[in-house]
């Protein structure tokens, strides 16, 4: 039975598969940095911010995305960083 549903699923949705694969490929194509540079930048950001607060390095997420300007005059590349602060940490140590 499963081969029948698989057959139908793949033939019904090959366009959706194509779209999803393209979206992922194009997003990384559009990113301004190579993965190596991203990793380097991520480490630098961790190092600097750790001077001030304890951050959860596992939950850290940094990526380059396109975002609309506030006055909706256009779309720009933006560096989006989600940096969780560890619970119970004393902020602004210095």
């Amino acid at each position: 039975m499963s081969f029948i549903t698989n057959f139908f699923r793949s033939s019904e949705n090959s366009k959706e598969i194509a779209k999803n694969r393209l979206k992922v490929a194009i997003t990384s194509d559009r990113a301004v940095c190579s993965p190596e540079v991203m990793e380097q930048m991520k480490n630098d950001i961790i190092r600097v911010i750790s001077n001030y607060v304890d951050i959860d390095t596992d939950g850290l997420d940094i990526k380059v995305t396109k975002t609309e300007l506030d006055d909706s005059s256009g779309v720009v590349n933006a560096l989006l960083a989600n940096i969780p602060i560890k619970e119970g940490s004393r902020n602004f140590r210095k």
């Binding site: 033939s11 019904e12 366009k15 194509a18 779209k19 393209l22 979206k23």
Partner: peptide, 16 residues
Amino acid sequence: MVREGNMMSSDDVVEI
């Protein structure tokens, strides 16, 4: 093929 869901439509391409 677009009708069968096996080719992206022009709208799909524009969306991407």
